[in-house]
Structure formats: C-alpha cells, structure tokens
C-alpha cells in the first residue's frame, strides 16, 4: 500500500524533473505536510492535557512526536523520492538507538533502584554534610 502511494507521488512529480535528476515533489505536498504538522502540534499539547498516568502519557507523547518526525523525514527530507538506502540508514540508526534505550532501561527496572525517597534522603544528608564542611573550611 505504501509502495502504491509512493509510486503515485513520484508519478505526479514526473513532469517536474528531467532524466537523472531527482524527483521534485509538487508544492501541494509541502503545504499539506506543514498543515498536518501544525495539527499534530496541537495534538501534542492536547494529549498532555488528557491527564493520563505517567507511563501511557510519555508513550502517547512519543508516538505523536514519532508521527511528526516520520512525515518530516519522508517528505521534507525527501526520503520518499530518494534511494531506498537512505531510509535503511535512518531506520537502522533508530533501531540501534532503541536498543540502547531498551536494554539500559530494562537494567534500571530490574535492579530495583526505584527508591526516590532513599535517594533524596541521601542527597539531603550529603548536601547537608557538604554545607557543613564548607562552613568549617571557608574558601
């Protein structure tokens, strides 16, 4: 289905280019994408006001951002009309990024560090000690 859409867009831009030179997308496409981006920005703010619990809220925010990012990449950055290898580069980069996030967060989660009260106590105590030693030895 995406392949068909891609073909359609490329065909419509066929009049604007000559052989060997890259496809030029019709002006309409740019303005439609821009309008969508504006709408999605409103959605971004709207989603945050929905009052979702923390984890779904962050996932929703990231999903909306991902949609915006995808249309910027596909249209503004011209991926739809370019050598498919550039898309491969982008997708593999995102994949490795997600790998980094995923495995590290998995470690954080299964370690049971989630103890903000204890950490806050430690910080306050340490800062208090730090403040004391600074008082005792002024510079």
């Amino acid at each position: 289905m995406f392949a068909k859409f891609r073909k359609e867009v490329l065909q419509r831009s066929a009049d604007d280019h000559s052989s060997g030179e890259p496809h030029v997308l019709p002006l309409k496409v740019y303005f439609i994408v821009f309008a969508s981006l504006m709408v999605l920005t409103v959605v971004t703010v709207g989603v945050s006001l929905l009052g979702l619990p923390p984890v779904p809220s962050i996932i929703a925010a990231i999903l909306v951002a991902a949609v915006k990012a995808t249309i910027v990449a596909v249209f503004f950055m011209h991926l739809i009309a370019e050598d498919k290898f550039y898309s491969v580069i982008l997708v593999s980069t995102v994949f490795f990024m997600l790998l980094f996030f995923g495995l590290t967060l998995l470690d954080m989660d299964s370690r049971g560090f989630k103890n903000p009260e204890e950490s806050l106590e430690y910080w306050q105590q340490f800062s208090h000690e730090k403040a004391l030693t600074e008082e005792a030895a002024p510079e």
Partner: peptide, 28 residues
C-alpha cells in the same frame, strides 16, 4: 547525499545519549 545521511545517523545517535540520560533521570 549518502555521506550526509550517514552523518545525520551519527548525529541522531549523539542526541540519543542525551535522551537516554533524560529517560533514566525521569525514571528515577
């Protein structure tokens, strides 16, 4: 263009470190 896309790939991973720090801190 290929060179530029590769460079963008590395810029993305550069910022990914910052996002990772963000996610870890928000988690804690």
């Amino acid at each position: 263009k290929l060179g530029m896309w590769l460079f963008l790939g590395q810029e993305l991973l550069f910022f990914s470190g910052l996002f990772m720090a963000y996610f870890a801190a928000r988690y804690f």
